[in-house]
C-alpha cells in the first residue's frame, strides 16, 4: 500500500506574521516550519504503516526553498520518502493552483491508496485543498477524521460535522484529512533524525510534473486580494481584582453598562 502525506511549510504562528506589499503571505521573512496540523496526518500515516505490511509513506510539499525543512521533519518522524516541489513560478499561488501542483505531483508519484492531509493549513487555513485534490484526482474524500479505521481497502472515519457526529466510509483510493482529535504526533527520535539523512528526498520543478508556469502563481490566481490591514490593536481593558466578591459585582456592572443584561 502507498500513502502520500501532504505537508505544508507555513510561517510560524507564534512569530509576527505579515503580508508582502502584493498582499501575499510573507513566506520568506519569518521562520517557517511543518504546519502543526499536518503533523497529525503524518502521525496517522505512520500508525497505519506500523499496523500494516509493505506500506510506503511519501511526504509531499509544495513550497519555497526552505519548505524542504517540512519534508525533512516528516522524514525524521518516520516517513520513507520525501518530495519537494519548488519553483519560482509557484509563489503566490492560491488553493486552486496549489491543488493543481499537488495533484500533478501525486500523479507523477503514482496515485496512492491514500492521500492524507491535515484538516487545514495553519496559515491560510481554508480547509479546501483536500476537497480540491479529491476533485482533481477524481477520488472520494473522507475528511476531518477524528478516529480512523481501515480494513483492507475499506476506510471508516468518525468526524464531528457541523450538526452531527458521523461515520463516513469509502473504498481506497481516497483522500483523507485528519484533525488534531486523532492524538498527539510523535517527536523525531535521535535515531529518526539520523536515519532521515539517508532517506530519498527529491526536488521537482514544475516542468518535472508537467505543469506550465502560466497555470500557477499570483498573476493567474482566480481571486485577487485587494487590500490587507492589520486589525487595530485592542485598547487595554479594565482589570479588577476580586476581593470579597467585588469582582462579581464589577463584572455585572460592566455587562449591564454594555447592555448585555
Amino acid at each position: 500500500m502507498n500513502i502520500v502525506v501532504c505537508v505544508k511549510y507555513v510561517p510560524d504562528a507564534t512569530a509576527d506574521r505579515q503580508f508582502e506589499s502584493d498582499n501575499t503571505v510573507d513566506r520568506v521573512g519569518v521562520d517557517g516550519l511543518l504546519s502543526e496540523l499536518d503533523e497529525y496526518a503524518v502521525e496517522q500515516a505512520l500508525q497505519l504503516k506500523e499496523k500494516g505490511e509493505d506500506i510506503e509513506v511519501t511526504a509531499l510539499c509544495v513550497g519555497p526553498e526552505k519548505g524542504v525543512d517540512a519534508v525533512r521533519k516528516a522524514l525524521q518522524m518516520g516517513v520513507d520518502k520525501g518530495i519537494h516541489v519548488v519553483d519560482d513560478a509557484i509563489a503566490g499561488s492560491d488553493a486552486i493552483a496549489t491543488s493543481l501542483v499537488l495533484a500533478k505531483a501525486i500523479e507523477k508519484i503514482g496515485v496512492p491508496d491514500l492521500v492524507m492531509c491535515g484538516m487545514a493549513s495553519t496559515d491560510a487555513g481554508m480547509s479546501v485543498v483536500p476537497a480540491m485534490l479529491a476533485e482533481r484526482l477524481d477520488l472520494p474524500q473522507v475528511t476531518f477524521a477524528a478516529v480512523i479505521e481501515t480494513q483492507g481497502d475499506q476506510v471508516r472515519i468518525k468526524r464531528d460535522s457541523d450538526t452531527a457526529t458521523e461515520i463516513v466510509g469509502g473504498t481506497m483510493p481516497l483522500v483523507m484529512s485528519v484533525t488534531d482529535q486523532t492524538g498527539e504526533a510523535r517527536y523525531p527520535s535521535f535515531k529518526g533524525i539520523m536515519a532521515a539523512k539517508k532517506k530519498p528526498l527529491e526536488t521537482w520543478s514544475l516542468s518535472d510534473i508537467g505543469v506550465d508556469a502560466s497555470e500557477v502563481g499570483l498573476s493567474v490566481a482566480w481571486t485577487s486580494v485587494e487590500e490587507t490591514a492589520a486589525r487595530p490593536p485592542r485598547t487595554a481593558g479594565e482589570i479588577v481584582k476580586d476581593e470579597d466578591g467585588a469582582g462579581a459585582t464589577a463584572l455585572v456592572g460592566f455587562l449591564a453598562s454594555k447592555k448585555f443584561i
Binding site: P140, Q141, A164, E166, I167, V168, G170, L174
Partner: peptide
C-alpha cells in the same frame, strides 16, 4: 457516490 455517510448521530 463513493464516500458514504455510514451513520449519523445528530447533536
Amino acid at each position: 457516490k463513493k464516500a458514504q455517510i455510514v451513520a449519523s448521530q445528530p447533536r
